[in-house]
C-alpha cells in the first residue's frame, strides 16, 4: 500500500508506518539494514527500482531523500510504500526549502534500530562522502564515479578523501574482471613483466583495475583507450607471449593463452541492482579498495610527461 503524507513530521511518518504494518498483518521479515538514497526527482525512479531488487536479497528500509526547490518554505512530504515491490519498506522523503540542508534531522529518527546504515549516491556524489551529513550517518557510503563528468578526477578526489567504509560502483564493476584475472593467474604461468587494460575513455573501472594490478603484481600496467563498450581488454606480457582477455561486445570474453586454443568466458556487464546487492553483501571497510586508491594517487602524483603521439595506436597511456 502507498501512503502519502504532506507537510508532515518524522513522528507522523513513524506512526503511519506502524499502522501500515499492523494492517498488513505484521511483517515477519527482519530488515537487515537501512539504505539511504540521495537522489533527485529525475533519477529517483530508477534508483528506487534497483534498490527494491537488491532488497530481495537484503531486506531493508529504503529512505529516498530528494531535495526540492531550495527557495521555498521548509516542508517535508513523505510517500510510504509497504508490502509492494520489495520485502522491506520504502519511504520517499521530499524536502523543500532550507530543510533540504538538514536532511539528516529527518533521516536519523527513521533509521531501523540496531542494524547498519548504507548511504548511496546513484548520481554525482559529494567530494568527501564521509563528511556529508547523510554519509556521516552511515557505515558504508556508495558513490558512482562513472556518473560524474570527469570520472578520473572524481576517483582521484575520492582517493584523497577516503575514509573506511567508502566504496564506489567503479570498483564494484571491477569484480567480475578481477575474479577472472585472478582465476587466470591460478594456472601455472610464466613470469609477468607488464600489463595493459583497455577501455573506453573515462572509465574509472579500468583505471582501478590497472591500479590494482600494478599494486598486486609490482609491474607497470598501462591503460589503453578503445571504443568500448566498457572495458574491452586486459593483457599480461610474459616471456612466452601475451596472455590476453578481450571482450568486444560487453558480454563474452575470449581468453588467449600462448600455445593454447582460445577459450570463451562469460563476462557480462551487470545492472545497478546487481552492483548494489554486491555492495550490501559486506559492510566492513574494503581494505583492498583502499590500497588500490592509494595506488591511483601514486600514479597521479608525477605530472604526466607529454606523450609522444602514436597515431597508429590511437592510445593514451596513463601509467
Amino acid at each position: 500500500m502507498t501512503i502519502d503524507l504532506t507537510d508532515t513530521t518524522t513522528g507522523a511518518i513513524d506512526s503511519a508506518l506502524n499502522e501500515a504494518r499492523r494492517r498488513l498483518g505484521g511483517m515477519t521479515l527482519g530488515m537487515v539494514l537501512t539504505l539511504i538514497i540521495v537522489t533527485d526527482e529525475a533519477a529517483q525512479y530508477d534508483a528506487i527500482r534497483s534498490a527494491n531488487q537488491a532488497a530481495r536479497e537484503h531486506p531493508c528500509r529504503i529512505l529516498a531523500v530528494i531535495a526540492r526547490r531550495p527557495k521555498a518554505d521548509s516542508r517535508l512530504d513523505a510517500e510510504i510504500r509497504v508490502g509492494e515491490a520489495s520485502p522491506g519498506e520504502t519511504i520517499v522523503l521530499r524536502m523543500y526549502g532550507p530543510l533540504g540542508q538538514h536532511a539528516d534531522s529527518v533521516v536519523a529518527p527513521l533509521l531501523v534500530p540496531d542494524v547498519p546504515v548504507v548511504t548511496w549516491w546513484p548520481d554525482e556524489g559529494p567530494e568527501m562522502p564521509a563528511k556529508h551529513p547523510l554519509g556521516a550517518l552511515a557505515q558504508r557510503r556508495v558513490t558512482d564515479s562513472a556518473a560524474s563528468d570527469d570520472p578520473y578526477e572524481t576517483i582521484t578526489a575520492l582517493a584523497s578523501a577516503y575514509q573506511p567504509g567508502d566504496t564506489d560502483f567503479g570498483w564494484t564493476r571491477a569484480t567480475p574482471w578481477r575474479s577472472l584475472l585472478a582465476a587466470t593467474l591460478d594456472q601455472a604461468h610464466p613470469a609477468i613483466t607488464a600489463g595493459e587494460v583497455g577501455a573506453e575513455q573515462g572509465n574509472p573501472t579500468a583505471d582501478l583495475i590497472a591500479a590494482w594490478l600494478t599494486a598486486r603484481l609490482g609491474v607497470p600496467v598501462t591503460r589503453a583507450v578503445s571504443a568500448g563498450p566498457g572495458i574491452t581488454s586486459a593483457s599480461f606480457s610474459t616471456a612466452e607471449g601475451d596472455i590476453t582477455i578481450t571482450r568486444a561486445d560487453g558480454r563474452t570474453a575470449t581468453l588467449a593463452w600462448p600455445g593454447r586454443i582460445d577459450r570463451m568466458v562469460s563476462l557480462h556487464r551487470r545492472d545497478t541492482a546487481e552492483l548494489l546487492a554486491e555492495e550490501l553483501r559486506r559492510l566492513d571497510p574494503d581494505e583492498v579498495y583502499h590500497e588500490t586508491l592509494n595506488q591511483v594517487l601514486i600514479n597521479a602524483l608525477p605530472p604526466e610527461p607529454p606523450e609522444p603521439a602514436e597515431p597508429d595506436e590511437g592510445g593514451v597511456t596513463r601509467v
Binding site: T172, T175, R178, S179, L181, A182, A183, L185, D186, Q187, L213, R216, L217, G218, E278, R282, D286, E287, V288
Partner: peptide
C-alpha cells in the same frame, strides 16, 4: 592445490569469489 601464492588473491579481498582451479 599447493599453488604458489597468486598475487591477485588476498584473503581480505572478499569480493573475489572462490573459483575452482582448472
Amino acid at each position: 592445490a599447493g599453488d604458489p601464492v597468486n598475487p591477485l588473491r588476498d584473503p581480505r579481498d572478499r569480493r573475489i569469489p572462490r573459483v575452482a582451479g582448472p
